[in-house]
Simulated assay, not measured.
Amino acid sequence: MNVLPDLSILPVFMLVFTRCSAFLVASPLFAIPGIPPVVKSGFAFILAVIIYPLAARPGLTAADSLWGYGLMVLSEAAVGLAMGIVCTMVFNALRMAGQMIDLQIGYAMSQMMDPVSGSMNTLLGRFLYFLSLAALLCMDGHHGLIWGLAKSYQVLPLNSAEMSGDVAVFVIRVFADTITMALKVAIPVISVLLMTDIALGVMGRTAPQMNIFMLGFPFKIMLGLVSLAVLLPLMGSILAAVFDRMQKDLILLVKGLS
């Protein structure tokens, strides 16, 4: 009796594993450098094992040549990275909103190196980013990401991705929506700080002997943090709508590549 495993499925399984790995590398949760690569690879392997029965359609075979198979691997890696980047853009919008608030509140002068993104980020930018990650886990958004990854194999089967102008337009629209989303989150606090600047300017004109520059720093910080605290209870509904939009954008991207 032959008890050896069927190794003919290995090339197709590696294609599934490639898309899962690329998606996790660029996804918002597993893009954190602090997570060991072994953990990322192990989780990608488990996802590939679970998703393989959905992804392996009848008659699918790997390329006959090494170069052809290499192109298939690159194609699946590109699809996974594109999906992960679209999901990460949502969290970058919240980080951008925090940076806009920091610029007005005065925290932008204390920029520090963020080990998560490997770039310079401000205090409230990091706060809103980690808040969105915590909300993603609390709202089972990570399950939605896994569902989107599994759904992508049905909408966009292995070795069927095609780049078109519609995909480029879609990515530009997602980027524009990211900036719009950041403005919508930051506008309430920025409006309060703008009115504060106007009030301080009027005070500076009416009472020139007052040091408005030194007085404005702690006053704007206090008002900015109070405004953000008032806005936080509404962040749950905002983030729920944002995560729902993220899943829809993920499927729209996959449909555009099919």
Rank of each mutant, 00 (worst) to 15 (best):
residue 10 L to I: 13
residue 16 V to Y: 02
residue 19 R to P: 05
residue 21 S to V: 01
residue 25 V to W: 05
residue 26 A to M: 10
residue 26 A to P: 04
residue 29 L to A: 04
residue 30 F to S: 05
residue 34 G to F: 14
residue 38 V to G: 07
residue 40 K to Y: 13
residue 41 S to R: 07
residue 47 L to N: 01
residue 52 Y to K: 08
residue 52 Y to D: 09
residue 56 A to E: 00
residue 58 P to K: 04
residue 60 L to N: 00
residue 64 D to F: 07
residue 65 S to H: 08
residue 67 W to S: 11
residue 70 G to R: 06
residue 74 L to S: 14
residue 76 E to L: 04
residue 80 G to A: 08
residue 84 G to Y: 01
residue 84 G to A: 09
residue 85 I to S: 05
residue 88 T to A: 11
residue 90 V to Q: 05
residue 99 Q to L: 06
residue 102 D to L: 03
residue 105 I to S: 01
residue 107 Y to R: 03
residue 110 S to K: 09
residue 114 D to N: 10
residue 115 P to Y: 09
residue 116 V to N: 07
residue 118 G to V: 08
residue 119 S to K: 14
residue 125 G to L: 04
residue 125 G to W: 01
residue 126 R to Q: 15
residue 129 Y to P: 01
residue 129 Y to L: 10
residue 131 L to R: 07
residue 134 A to L: 13
residue 135 A to C: 13
residue 135 A to P: 04
residue 136 L to R: 01
residue 139 M to R: 02
residue 140 D to L: 05
residue 145 L to I: 09
residue 146 I to D: 03
residue 149 L to W: 02
residue 157 P to L: 04
residue 160 S to C: 09
residue 161 A to W: 02
residue 172 I to A: 13
residue 175 F to Q: 07
residue 179 I to K: 07
residue 180 T to Q: 15
residue 180 T to D: 12
residue 190 I to L: 15
residue 192 V to F: 07
residue 192 V to I: 12
residue 205 R to N: 15
residue 207 A to P: 06
residue 209 Q to N: 12
residue 217 F to S: 10
residue 218 P to K: 14
residue 224 G to R: 02
residue 224 G to V: 03
residue 227 S to R: 12
residue 228 L to H: 03
residue 229 A to M: 15
residue 234 L to V: 13
residue 235 M to S: 10
residue 237 S to R: 15
residue 241 A to P: 01
residue 242 V to P: 00
residue 245 R to A: 08
residue 246 M to D: 03
residue 247 Q to H: 12
residue 253 L to E: 05
residue 254 V to S: 07
residue 258 S to E: 07
